[in-house]
Simulated scan of single mutants.
Amino acid sequence: MQSNKLRLAIRATAAAAVFGVAGQAGAVNFKAGDYDMSVYGYARFNASYDVDSNQALSTRSGSYAGLAGNDNAPEGHFGADAFQSRIGVKTTSPEGVMINIEGDFRGGGGGTLRLRHAYGSYNGVLAGQTWSNFTSFVGNTSTLDFDSLPGNAGYQSRTAQVRYTSGPLSVSLEDPNYSFVTTAANDISKDGLPTVTARLEDSAGGMSYSAAVLAHQIAYDDGTNDESSLGFATFVAAKMAVSDMITIQGSLSYTDGANSYLYRSGENFGAASAYVDGNGDVETISGYGGTIGAGINLGGGRSINIGYGMVEVDWDDAEADGVAVAGQSETNSAIMANYQWTPVKNVMMGVELQRLSRENVSGTDGDASRLLFAAQYNF
C-alpha cells in the first residue's frame, strides 16, 4: 500500500511539473460520431517584477541574455501577459488512431498562435511534432517560470520526429538541432542525417526514473570542404517520494557536440555545439548540467517547491584555437522557490521568488532577483 502511495505521489508531482499547476488539469470530453474527442487547455495570467535588470521574456519567464555585466542596468521592472494560455484537441478513431493538435500564444514574441503539438500515433508508432524523445519531466521541480530551471533533462521542447515505443523503451529519428559558434559556419552548415535518440523511462517501488542517449551529425559544406563530426548527449533523471508529503527529484546531463540539448545553456537556451578550426575540421564543444529540487505537499491544494539548476559549457578548446568566445555564457544557474495554491479544482494560483546568475568566458558575470505571480484556469 505504501509503495502504491509513493508511486501516485511521484506521478502527481511529475504531472504538476509538466503542466505548471498544483492541481489536476481537466478536459471537455465528447463523442463525434464514432470518434472520442477531448478539448483541453487553460487561460493563464503571468506577472513579473524584476528587482534588478529587466530579464523578462514573454510569459514573464527569466532570460539569461544580457545578464552578465548588468550592474549598471536600470532596476525595477514590472510586466504581465497571458501568452502562455493554450488550447488543444485530441481525438481517437474507432481503429485506435490518436491525433493531437495543440497551440499556445507565445509565438512571434507573444500574442501569436504557436504550434506546440501536431502528431498522430498508432500501435506504438508516432509521427509528427511533439516532445523530443530526448526529454523527461520525471526529475523536474514544479516552477511558475514557464522556461524553468537550467539543467533540466534533455531538450525540454518539441520537435518533428518519428518514434516507436514499446513498454518503457522508446527510440526516435528527429529533426537535427545544433549550431556552430560563428555565423559564417552556420551559413554553410547542413543537415545530412536525422538525430537518433533512445530513452528508458519507468518506475520501481517509490521511484520513477528516466535515462536517454542521443547522437547526431554536425556538418558543413562550403563547396570546397565537406566536413562533419559526431555529437552525442545523455541524461539521467529521477523522482522519489520520501513520504506522503515530500518528493525529491533531480537530473544530470552531459553533452559533447550536442549543446542544443543542454537545457538553458549558452545565451539563453542551447549553446553552440561545435566550431570549425583553422584546418577546417569540425570540433565539438562539451557541457554538463543538473538540477535538484524538493516538493512539499501541504494539503488542501497547497504546495511549496524549491529547485536549483545549473549548466556549464567548456569553451577552453575553442578559446585555445583562437575562436572569439569571450562573450559566450560559460555558466548559467538559477534557484527558484514557489508557493502554489489550488482554491478549487482546475484553478491554480502561485507566487515564486527566483535568482538567476550567469558568468561569461571572459569572467564578466551578473545576477538578478525576480518575483513571479501566476493564475491558471484549466478546462
Rank of each mutant, 00 (worst) to 15 (best):
Q2A: 15
A27W: 04
K31N: 15
D36M: 06
R60I: 14
Y64M: 08
N70L: 04
N72W: 11
H77A: 12
A80D: 15
A80C: 11
A82M: 14
S93H: 08
G96I: 01
V97N: 10
G107E: 06
G109T: 07
G110P: 04
G128W: 01
S132D: 06
N133P: 08
V138H: 03
N152S: 14
A153S: 00
S157R: 03
N177Y: 01
K190Q: 14
G205Q: 08
A215S: 13
D226P: 04
S228N: 10
G231D: 03
F235W: 01
V242W: 00
S243F: 10
D244R: 02
S253C: 05
G257A: 03
A258H: 03
R264V: 01
F269H: 05
G270W: 13
G278E: 15
T284Y: 02
G289K: 03
T291V: 05
L298A: 12
R302A: 15
I306A: 13
G307D: 09
Y308N: 08
E312P: 03
V313T: 07
A318T: 04
G322A: 02
G327A: 12
Q328T: 09
I335E: 14
M336L: 13
V344I: 06
G350C: 05
S357G: 14
S362T: 09
D367L: 13
A368F: 05
L371S: 08
A374G: 14
Q376V: 10
